[in-house]
């Protein structure tokens, strides 16, 4: 499993996943108000914190995405990415079990983009796998690997 600690693998995963998160956050930042409707439609949160989520989540996605791309605090960004994707999967899974297809609000704040909730869960799985690789298999310290180098 040492290949999971390959620094190049982490760079590639970081850029790929980071680009997705930057794109996701950037699309929602100009106007967070439609996002309120989308989060509301998930029916998993009480009314109170919905606005806080609409205010801050796009910025967290953007910051985390940039950190993944640049490598600055990449492992911490992977921790946030894992947490965010896990929460998305839980919210989507609840609606999939309810038989409700929701507008995911993944890449835009369009309430019209309704998708099959199970497909959205499936789409998130490879992303959370990539985030978990970066979180749980940090690149090995070169000094420790090659003490004589």
């Amino acid at each position: 499993m040492s290949w999971l600690r390959n620094p190049w693998l982490h760079r590639v995963l970081g850029v790929a996943l980071g680009a997705i998160f930057v794109y996701a956050g950037y699309g929602k930042i100009p106007d967070p108000r439609p996002l309120v409707t989308i989060i509301w439609n998930y029916r998993v949160l009480p009314a109170g914190p919905i606005n806080l989520m609409a205010i801050y989540m796009p910025w967290l996605e953007l910051v985390v995405g940039l950190a993944l791309i640049t490598g600055f605090k990449r492992r911490a960004a992977a921790l946030w990415t894992t947490g965010l994707l896990a929460s998305f999967i839980v919210a989507l899974g609840i609606n999939a079990l309810r038989g409700v297809n929701v507008a995911c609000g993944c890449f835009s704040a369009s309430a019209q983009e309704v998708h099959n909730a199970w497909l959205l869960v499936l789409r998130d799985l490879p992303m959370i796998a990539a985030a978990m690789v970066m979180l749980f298999f940090p690149p090995a310290d070169r000094g420790r690997l090659r003490p004589g180098a």
Partner: peptide, 9 residues
């Protein structure tokens, strides 16, 4: 122009 009330109520 893009302000949201902090609490959803």
């Amino acid at each position: 122009a893009r302000h949201l009330p902090w609490w959803g109520k």
